[in-house]
């Protein structure tokens, strides 16, 4: 049973309760990881609505398959794997995305909110947008696995061993993917400059 304040319970305890059918315990896990989940989905999609849908879908899949979670990895690693697989599937379904249009959609927002950064000058904004567009274009050209490794490392700060666990691959393979991704990005950005 989860302690009187579920928010203070550890992941393991919450998972045990959720596996027994206590949905509220799983909702605490959702609250705990929703921002991280959203951010990684956003890294893959660069679209707010898509990122929201993908991260929510990952939570739903985790909830449905929770009884099969064998605790060999932590809940977060297991959940990350579900999310990354969904993101990779999304990339396969969508193919190469028009990053320019996605950047526009993100920057204009959906009317609900704005990016919480101090307003830059028009020049800075233009330069920032141009750089963002170039980076988006360069990232879009990476093969899905290289891109996934790069995003998990560069954007999420996961260690090589964590990425290897999430992606079910050898550490050497992950290092090779990261190396190729960084070199390809560097080359593309140099070409675009």
């Amino acid at each position: 049973m989860v302690s009187s304040r579920p928010e203070e319970s550890g992941d393991e305890e919450l998972v045990t309760s959720a596996q027994r059918g206590e949905r509220q315990a799983f909702e605490v896990l959702v609250d705990r990881y929703k921002q991280k989940a959203y951010r990684i989905a956003f890294d893959f999609t660069r679209d707010r609505e898509e990122a929201k849908d993908l991260s929510q879908e990952a939570f739903l899949q985790a909830f449905s398959h929770l009884k099969g979670f064998d605790r060999r990895a932590s809940f977060y690693t297991w959940f990350y794997r579900i999310l990354v697989n969904l993101c990779l599937d999304y990339r396969r379904r969508r193919g190469r995305i028009s990053w320019e249009s996605l950047d526009e959609r993100t920057e204009k927002g959906n009317g609900l909110d704005k990016i919480a950064n101090p307003a830059p000058s028009p020049d800075q904004q233009a330069m920032g947008e141009e750089l963002s567009r170039r980076i988006g274009a360069a990232l879009a050209t990476l093969p899905p696995k290289q891109r996934a490794v790069f995003l998990l490392k560069n954007h999420q700060g996961l260690s090589i061993s964590e990425i290897a666990t999430v992606m079910k691959a050898a550490e050497g393979t992950i290092k090779a993917h990261l190396h190729r991704a960084v070199m390809a990005l560097r080359q593309r950005l140099t070409e675009l400059a």
Partner: peptide, 20 residues
């Protein structure tokens, strides 16, 4: 420079929690 951050507002997160 490749990290494109997105910090949605509290309203977004409220809607997110309701939906999920």
């Amino acid at each position: 420079a490749t990290v494109k951050s997105d910090e949605p507002s509290p309203a977004f997160w409220q809607s997110y929690s309701r939906e999920i």
